[in-house]
Simulated assay, not measured.
Amino acid sequence: MTERETTRLVAWSQELRRVHGRLREALDVTRAALADGTPGQAATRDLLLYCHGFCTALDAHHRGEDRSLFPAIEAAHPQLAPVLRALEQDHSMIGHLLGELQAAVARAATRAELQRHLDGVAAIMENHFRYEERRLLGLLESLDLVADPGDVLGPL
Rank of each mutant, 00 (worst) to 15 (best):
T2Q: 13
E3F: 12
E3L: 15
E5H: 15
T6V: 14
L9Y: 13
W12Q: 00
Q14M: 15
Q14A: 10
R17M: 13
R17W: 13
H20Q: 13
R24L: 12
E25N: 05
E25F: 06
T30Q: 03
T30F: 02
A33K: 04
A35C: 10
D36Q: 13
P39T: 00
P39N: 03
R45T: 06
R45D: 07
D46F: 04
G53R: 08
G53F: 02
C55D: 13
A57L: 07
L58R: 02
L58A: 11
L58V: 03
H61Y: 07
R63S: 09
D66G: 12
P71T: 02
I73N: 04
I73A: 09
H77K: 15
P78Q: 09
Q79Y: 05
L80V: 08
L87A: 12
S92P: 06
I94N: 07
G95R: 12
G95F: 13
G95Q: 14
H96I: 09
L98K: 03
L98G: 00
G99N: 04
L101I: 03
Q102L: 05
Q102W: 02
V105H: 01
V105Q: 03
R111Y: 07
A112P: 02
A112E: 01
E113T: 07
L114S: 06
Q115H: 08
L118V: 07
D119Q: 11
I124Q: 08
N127P: 02
F129Y: 15
R130S: 08
E133Q: 05
L136C: 03
L137E: 01
L137S: 00
E141I: 14
S142Q: 10
S142G: 06
V146N: 08
